[in-house]
């Protein structure tokens, strides 16, 4: 267990990479895609998105999806982090770069209409709750 993650290791977050970070459109899809890498999202997915009666709609792999735009909470920012492995220099410190930033993303459901009860929306409540847990307490007795 310990050899898997050397506990002393620091993984640097390269803040300088922010200036080169892209502003990509981000979509959370309700299916597992067994692939990492390039895809012509702009060509085949984005153009078919349209505003339906009560939600955004799109067809993906022959399935109709219903979606909603989710805003990142104030004071927070969406980041896509990337680590480029250099197998030969693994001993040297590891670094993670910011590849892309975003302030909202589109969450897609299969059947159900998107709502405030969706897990992804609920999860965005975490920063507020976390703030209450971690902010300093009042000093007076």
């Amino acid at each position: 267990m310990m050899c898997e993650n050397q506990p002393g290791t620091l993984i640097k977050l390269d803040l300088g990479s922010l200036t080169q970070a892209a502003h990509d459109a981000v979509h959370l899809l309700p299916c597992e895609i067994q692939y990492n890498g390039h895809a012509a999202v702009d060509k085949y997915f984005i153009p078919t998105i349209h505003q339906g009666a009560s939600a955004k709609e799109v067809s993906f792999r022959g399935r109709p999806l219903k979606g909603q735009e989710i805003k990142i909470p104030a004071g927070y920012v969406g980041l896509v982090l990337e680590e480029n492995h250099k197998p030969c220099s693994e001993e040297k410190g590891r670094t993670v770069c910011m590849k892309s930033t975003f302030l909202s993303f589109t969450q897609w459901n299969l059947e159900t209409l998107p709502s405030a009860d969706d897990c992804a929306v609920m999860s965005l409540m975490w920063p507020k709750i976390s703030k209450a847990i971690h902010q300093p307490v009042d000093n007076e007795e």
Partner: peptide, 25 residues
């Protein structure tokens, strides 16, 4: 959440997890 993936720009990311970094006491 199970069975989720991301589209980020012109790429697919298989790992559909969403991480949070929040200030901690």
């Amino acid at each position: 959440e199970d069975y989720h993936s991301w589209f980020i720009g012109q790429t697919v990311q298989h790992d559909g997890r969403l991480f949070f970094a929040t200030p901690m006491d």
